[in-house]
């Protein structure tokens, strides 16, 4: 068992990192391609996004606490930190949902122009990964609540945790490239 889950998850995450790297490259490649319509600078609300970004960033801390409690067999705190992680992740997704709704109201869509295309593809795939992470975390929490014999092993916690940190790190890059670039 020793380290196999971890190795598999790290390889998976590296593969996924490559995928996101190319999406980010596509975004940067088209960043100043001209064209008409909205751009990152004109359409995005950096302040609101930074609020729900903080939720996602802090969930890296909570998932780390959950893993630590799992290794020390502290069941109660582990459930608490797992729940906190899920809530923070959900908060991020809700934030992203309202952002999308607002943009679409303003007629900024995936087919509007290259900004729309690259923005929704990149952030959409990230959102999908957050959602998958939430499903995994919910499974872990469900197992933890279900009782002793279902208690998730520390290795499972570690695997999901690596994935969650990765999702978080991808958002750091996206937040820098998509939202903060206009200040440079």
């Amino acid at each position: 068992m020793n380290g196999r889950v971890k190795q598999g998850m790290i390889l998976f995450v590296l593969s996924e990192a490559n995928f996101f790297l190319l999406l980010v490259c596509a975004y940067i490649f088209y960043h100043q391609s001209g064209g008409q319509g909205p751009t990152a600078a004109s359409a995005l609300d950096v302040f609101k996004t930074s609020l729900f970004s903080v939720a996602l960033f802090s969930s890296s801390f909570t998932v780390w606490r959950a893993g630590a409690c799992s290794r020390e067999s502290k069941r109660g705190p582990m459930r608490f930190w797992l729940l906190a992680t899920i809530l923070l992740g959900a908060l991020f997704l809700i934030g992203q949902g309202t952002e999308y709704a607002h943009l679409i109201e303003e007629n900024v869509t995936i087919s509007r122009n290259l900004f729309g295309t690259t923005f929704f593809t990149l952030t959409g795939f990230h959102g999908l990964h957050v959602f998958i992470g939430l499903v995994l975390l919910t499974i872990l929490l469900g197992l933890a609540v279900a009782g002793n014999e279902h208690e998730p092993r520390p290795t499972a916690m570690e695997g999901v945790s690596i994935y969650w940190h990765f999702v978080d790190a991808v958002w750091v890059v996206i937040f820098l490239v998509v939202y903060l670039w206009k200040y440079v």
Binding site: Y30, G34, G35, I110, S111, N113, L114, G116, T117, T121
Partner: peptide, 11 residues
Amino acid sequence: DAHFFTPASGG
């Protein structure tokens, strides 16, 4: 209807 690879709309 996105525009990654369509030169007509800047892709």
